[in-house]
Computed example of a mutant assay.
Amino acid sequence: MKIHVWNAFASNNSGSYTIVGRFPSEELATRVAAELSAVLEAHERWRGSPESRQEDPEKPSPLRAFTQAHSLTQSEADQADQGELRAWSTGHQVFLHDPWTLTLQDSYEEFLRVRGGKVETRIRHAHGDLVSVFELHGTLPKKTKAATVSAVVEEWYADDGPLVTLAPFDVQPAWREGSKPGEPVLTLGAVFQDLELAPGYTAVETIARRHGLQVTVRVSEDQSPGDPLAWLRPSHPALARKLFDVWILDAGHSLKEVARRLVELRRGRYIDGPTVLKWLPDAVLKRLTRDRAEQAVQFLRKGGANAELRPAE
């Protein structure tokens, strides 16, 4: 008889935490997000001060003072869970997101309710990508609807647009124009990384509003084995501008340096460099604007790679 014994330790790695609240008016959502942002910024400054080493009950931390003022649940996590937690609003919604934490205290959800909102989404300890689905609503004249939808997409994909500068290269955005009564005028799916969530949401909404459209966001953790936005592909309407793929034909003599540069181009997302590069030639970055593709090619060439751009399929 053989007996096998394993001794292991559970991993308790931090993941991202997201809370979405909905409010009866955009004005209220904006105020609530501003209140949360102010206390989070003050608390972050406090954490870097000498006072944070031993909190004085007579001079509580900004976050503890905030929970006391609104009669919210007090928690020792007041000090522990404040890392990169950020708050912002989009339309009627308020978003709280921390990319690297074990948990968030209950007082945040309580505050959303105290201020007249309701919690509609809670994503605890996520390790997968966050998939954001933007639904654009509004009343557009039938004669100009198609032109307006195309204009919105083109602005999102401008050289300085959010789908070019903030979306990662390995999960391409996708969109679809609504054609049936009750459907959104336009639905956009995108995967913004943790630090790009707030600026990405804000930029997408700003462009939509410029064309008279309101935005609602549904956010979820990607747990699919494949493309989380396959249901929106092929995108419609098609972009008027041409997009390009970046190909590496050969990594040259500096495989590690080319892999490092590729990680940087992919906005820091991990890749197994040796595995990816052994399949060359291959398209390593897809559907970029010409300027972005040319910049990527030059950056890879400086690292020793034989790279070129080709029209995207």
Rank of each mutant, 00 (worst) to 15 (best):
T121S: 10
T18E: 08
Q68I: 05
W156F: 09
P57K: 01
L104I: 13
Q79N: 09
E183K: 02
P24T: 05
Q295S: 06
V119R: 09
L104D: 05
L163P: 00
A208D: 03
G48A: 13
D56G: 07
T90K: 08
G178K: 07
V119E: 04
H253W: 04
D159Y: 12
E35I: 12
E221A: 13
P274Y: 10
L130M: 13
I3G: 02
E35G: 03
W6D: 15
V246E: 10
H236T: 13
D222G: 05
R261L: 12
P311V: 05
A147L: 12
P24Y: 03
W88A: 09
R113H: 13
P184A: 01
R267F: 11
E183N: 02
E155S: 12
L36G: 08
Y201G: 03
R310N: 04
R218Y: 06
R113D: 12
W156Q: 01
D81Y: 12
G252V: 08
R310P: 07
L166D: 06
F9A: 15
A77D: 14
Q295N: 10
Q74Y: 04
A238W: 07
H127I: 10
D291I: 12
G304M: 02
D291C: 03
T18W: 10
G91R: 03
W88H: 10
L239S: 11
T275R: 15
A158T: 01
W175V: 04
R31Y: 09
Q79H: 13
D227F: 00
V5L: 15
H211A: 01
H92E: 11
D159S: 14
K2S: 14
V204Y: 03
V204D: 01
R115M: 15
L36M: 14
A238T: 15
L239T: 10
L188D: 03
Q82C: 14
G182R: 07
L186N: 00
L265N: 02
V164P: 07
F134K: 00
Q193P: 05
L72N: 00
V131E: 10
V39Y: 04
H43I: 06
A305S: 08
G268D: 04
L255H: 08
L280Q: 01
G128S: 07
E196K: 11
F66G: 01
L255P: 02
D106N: 11
L285P: 02
G83Y: 14
S132T: 03
R267V: 07
E120F: 05
K145T: 08
K118E: 15
Y270K: 12
A167K: 01
D291E: 15
L72G: 04
S16P: 08
H137P: 00
A259L: 09
A146P: 02
E264N: 13
L262R: 09
G226N: 09
D78P: 05
L85N: 02
R45L: 15
A203G: 00
V114C: 08
D106P: 00
E110K: 08
E155K: 14
K256I: 11
E58C: 00
A146D: 13
S49N: 03
S49Y: 06
H125K: 11
A146G: 09
T139C: 09
K242C: 06
E84G: 12
E154R: 03
D194N: 14
G117I: 02
L72S: 07
D227T: 07
T73A: 01
R45I: 14
G15Y: 09
E35R: 15
P311M: 04
G268E: 10
P62N: 11
S11F: 13
W231A: 13
T216W: 11
Q82I: 15
T148M: 02
V164A: 07
P50Y: 09
T289M: 03
